[in-house]
Design a protein around this nucleic acid. Structure first.
Lengths: 198, 198
DNA sequence: GCGGTAAGTTACCACGGGTAACCTACTTGC
DNA sequence: GCAAGTAGGTTACCCGTGGTAACTTACCGC
């Protein structure tokens, strides 16, 4: 089949995009462990060493996937928060955008929160995502509780980030839980608690 | 040196304990991925097929480690909660016992919350641990908010479990945060929030 | 002592990550 | 146009490690 295209050559940027797309799909379908580099390469219509020249190693490829998802996620949540008015609504809209992103980008979600934990090298990358999130949230909380100890603010941020991740995984198992509901359950405890601590 | 013990033979139960101990150590030291079954076997002073006759596969070995840690963790937290009086104190003492357990059993902690996520097969085992925790917590919360929708109670439980995991990871990176502080940060948001929702 | 069996060993396979050496489609300079 | 250079690709391989088949030996009951 494949009408006569003996060996199509493609620019570097384009190829990297193709490989990343294939990697996200393959990793999320078969799991990082069970996914072979050959499978990724084959999906692109290319051989293994090509993948290696672009991303160095299997872990490097995973890291690149994570990095791209991270950028997207940050973009989406930051935009939602920016469009809101007031601290409470910023947290609410940002959280909801987080859940919605994971809904529409299922493979990326699987990758980030189920598969990526696999690689020792991806751990730090995930921690960086969380650091972004906690910093952002700590700043938000500070507007509501300006007198609180910075460590306490950081702790609260950790609580919120952890809660979001867990709620996301929970929703993955039980799709009856809407992103609105998940957001509300978080706000119930987090924001209500905060409001009464001042 | 090992004075002259040519080939010591050991009972099944004892061997399994030895192998589990070695596996927890090796997996947490080098990471599940980088740990070889040969390394585990060598640590016990035995060859690879012995490990396989006991645990079937690398994943099986990991699962057995997780199962044991899970039993310990449940035991410790349940005991702490049972010794407390009143719902709030049960949540507080249970949470603190959780953090304290992870403090004293570092390798087990690493295994559960950094390495175990690696294996596709270990994922369900971890979810079962969480299910235990969330059920327990949901029952606790129900005493405080008897009128709440069950799904909402479940959601709040997810929030709390996620928060605990994240706080534990945070403490792993920053040892200045004591188990008491971590517990308090959780209670600040979770319990205070809950108290004002009734 | 003398089998029978549980406990262990050696020697191997296969699969997948990673690489070295080679090849070829396109571009650039003349 | 055409030679030369190079980015983009391929084939063929290595080696570590999960997993297993076939054989060996320490211990127990009798």
């Amino acid at each position: 089949m494949e009408t006569s295209t003996p060996r199509r050559r493609v620019g570097r940027a384009e190829r990297e995009r193709q490989i990343l797309d294939a990697a996200v799909a393959v990793f999320s379908e078969r799991g990082y462990q069970n996914a072979s580099m050959d499978a990724v390469a084959e999906r692109v219509g290319v051989t293994k060493p090509v993948v290696y020249t672009h991303f160095g190693s299997k872990e490097g490829l995973l890291l690149a996937c994570v990095a791209r998802a991270r950028t997207d996620l940050l973009e989406v949540t930051a935009a939602a928060a920016a469009a809101a008015q007031g601290s409470e609504d910023m947290l609410r809209q940002g959280t909801k955008a987080f859940f919605d992103y994971l809904d529409t980008q299922r493979p990326a979600w699987t990758l980030l929160y189920s598969e990526a934990a696999i690689s020792a090298g991806a751990g730090p990358a995930l921690e960086e995502i969380r650091a972004q999130q906690t910093d952002f949230i700590a700043a938000l909380l500070a507007t509501q509780a300006p007198d609180a100890d910075p460590q306490r603010l950081a702790g609260w941020s950790q609580v919120i980030v952890g809660a979001c991740e867990r709620l996301a995984l929970w929703r993955g198992q039980d799709p009856r839980v809407s992103s609105e509901q998940a957001t509300e359950y978080l706000m119930d405890l987090a924001w209500t608690g905060l409001a009464h601590l001042r």
